[in-house]
């Protein structure tokens, strides 16, 4: 086992930067249909903030905040949001993910409904990508055992 290296400089800077990284990730997700970005990219940045935490501290530090049970639930929830919006369009008589039709159930006009539903889909994609990335990283880092965070 590599010994667990604690370093006050890295941990402090990580603690300082993590909120800004997560805020930028939310900006990328929410601003995806005006500028470069979107659910996948924002989710990757959000996952990178958790991976930064895992690298600066250890696996247990992230697993306390984002347990395996929660990541599994988040993966499913994101897919559910995405498919739910798509199926809602299908139920209302349009094509899958044809958001314009949603103005019948939302209290806005068709253009606004399209923008809102796009945001909803982006949020679903972002949640799924974040949870999948963190889950894959934690499993790779600890060789599937979710221990201290070191490979022998």
């Amino acid at each position: 086992m590599i010994k667990r290296n604690e370093d006050i400089i890295i941990q402090t800077v990580t603690r300082l930067l993590t909120p800004f990284v997560q805020l930028f990730a939310l900006y990328v997700i929410a601003h995806g249909h005006y500028s470069p970005g979107g659910g996948f990219q924002g989710g990757c940045i959000l996952a990178a903030s958790f991976i930064l935490m895992a690298v600066a501290n250890d696996v247990a530090f992230v697993k306390r905040r984002l347990p395996e049970r929660l990541t599994t639930a988040l993966i499913s929830a994101g897919v559910l949001i995405y498919a739910g919006i798509g199926l809602a369009c299908l139920m209302l008589g349009a094509n899958f993910l044809d958001y314009g039709i949603l103005h019948r159930v939302l209290p806005v006009d068709a253009v606004k409904a399209r923008a809102l539903a796009t945001l909803g889909v982006e949020i679903g994609v972002g949640i799924t990508v974040m949870a999948v990335m963190v889950s894959i990283f934690l499993n790779l880092l600890s060789a599937g055992r979710h221990e201290e965070g070191a490979v022998e």
Binding site: D7, I9, I10, L17
Partner: peptide
């Protein structure tokens, strides 16, 4: 951001 992150990465 670079001013904070780059020296930390070098460290």
């Amino acid at each position: 951001f670079i001013f904070v992150a780059n020296p930390t990465a070098s460290h």
